[in-house]
Structures are given as C-alpha cells and as structure tokens.
C-alpha cells in the first residue's frame, strides 16, 4: 500500500540557523504517527513544509503519491492541517470560522452547515459557537482549529501539538475523534512534547533532534524495551550543566 506521506531529504535554513538538516520519513496509511523532539528540534518547520505552509530549501513531499509542491491543487485537499504558533483569524465566531474553512475547501453551503453543526457538537463548542474566536481560551482555539482541519474530511491529518492547552475532557473528545479517523483508514501525524500521550495513542514514532531523525519505527522498536521518555532523553541528551539553583530554596 502506498504511504500516506513521504518526506524525502527535507532541508530548511533561516539565515545561518539550520532548522531542518535533512529529514526522511515514510508514514504508512492508517497509522497514528507521533513526532517527538526537544524544543527547537525542527518539528514545526518540518510539519510546515509537509503541509505547504513553508517552501523547503531542498527535498520533496508526497501525499498519497502526489508531489505536494508540484501539484498542490491535488495534494492539499487530502491534507487536514492544524498549525502551532500561528494566529487564527479571530474576528469570526467559532461557527463562522468552521463554515469559512468548509467553503474554502469547496463544500456547498448546505454541506458546510451540516458538518459545522456536527463538529461544534462533537468538540463541545456549541455554546461557544456564537462567540468571536478572539474571546476563546487557548484550548478552545485549538479545538476550533481542529474542526477547521477536519471539515473537508481529509485523508491525512497533520497536527502540530494538538493537545496543548486542552483540558482533559476535551482531550478525550479529540482522542476519540482521531482514533475513529485512524480506524476508518485515515492517517494522523502529530507532534507532541508529552511522551505519555504519544505512547498511549501512536503506533509509530519518530524522535527528531537538531533537524534530523534520531530514531524511527513502531512504538516498540523505538522504545527498545524501555520507557519512551528514557529513550528520548538518551537520544537527545540531557541538560549538560545540572546546576543547583540554591537561591530558589526557601531555607
């Protein structure tokens, strides 16, 4: 079976800073793929290049066999994207934002309305649907952005930190939606700092550090019989100077 997403030799530098030094990944269809890495490892840059938000310096992205940067009109409809660290247009209400995303993706108004109402209910945003997104909490913004990523029923979901700032109840709802999506043959790629969450949800994992893939494979292959967190720290390296901040202590 053709992989859902293939990244080949992706590279990106910003001036003298190398953000992504060369990443090759193959994400099989139907997998729940976790990408973990320390801050500044290049996760967001990689996912931006994999979703058409950032032109790579080098490298190719294939979505279900279609070159994303060569044939975006065929590849982009297959992708659902939740970026991290980008503001969302926040002067629309939550409901309006979801319909807007649906219409941009070419849904008819009637279909957009139906899916909007379903998504608002599924993500427990119904009461907030009439409030402007600017008044949302960080977690609610995350949820409405996820709804925008789902509205056109993509085949691959690329989610950057989807559970950040989301409360446990909403996280449960998002988890259920994502697991159902994968069960029906969809593919999810998500980045996260939270190892426990990745261990619980993902069947495949890549550990990324300094713009490179340090380890990749099924969860058990990468863990190599240990805790994911220990393995992660081992690969990435612990903080070198473990200085004792004695002045923080009270007595």
């Amino acid at each position: 079976m053709e992989p859902a997403l293939v990244l080949t030799g992706l590279q990106k530098s910003f001036g003298a800073t190398v953000a992504v030094a060369g990443i090759d990944l193959e994400i099989p269809q139907g997998s729940f793929y976790g990408m973990v890495g320390p801050n500044g490892a290049g996760k967001t840059t990689t996912l931006s290049m994999a979703t058409g938000l950032l032109t790579p310096d080098h490298g190719i992205v294939h979505v279900h066999g279609i070159d994303l940067w060569e044939r975006p009109d065929e590849a982009k409809p297959l992708l659902g994207v939740l970026p991290d660290g980008l503001h969302t247009f926040d002067r629309l209400t939550g409901a309006e934002l979801i319909s807007y995303a649906g219409l941009l993706r070419g849904l008819t108004p009637d279909e957009a309305r139906r899916r909007r109402d379903d998504l608002l209910a599924a993500l427990d945003l119904e009461s907030a649907g009439r409030t402007l997104v600017t008044d949302y909490s960080a977690g609610m913004k995350k949820k409405v952005a996820l709804a925008c990523a789902l509205v056109h029923a993509p085949r691959v979901l690329v989610l950057d930190e989807p559970f950040e700032a989301v409360d446990p109840v909403s996280a449960g709802a998002i988890r259920r939606i994502l697991l159902m999506f994968v069960e029906d043959g969809g593919t999810v790629i998500m980045s996260s700092h939270v190892m426990a969450l990745v261990e619980r949800l993902c069947d495949r994992v890549a550990i990324v550090g300094s713009g490179r893939v340090l380890a990749e494979g099924t969860l058990d292959e990468v863990r190599a019989g240990r805790d994911l967190e220990d393995r992660f720290v081992e690969l990435v390296g612990d903080v070198e100077d473990q200085r004792d901040l004695s002045w923080l202590r009270r007595s």
């Binding site: 058409g52 938000l53 980008l86 247009f89 941009l104 993706r105 070419g106």
Partner: peptide, 10 residues
Amino acid sequence: TALWLDVVSG
C-alpha cells in the same frame, strides 16, 4: 492571521 487557512486550503 487568515493566511495559513487560505494557504492550506489549496
């Protein structure tokens, strides 16, 4: 703020 949604939509 609207840019990313417009860009990923095709």
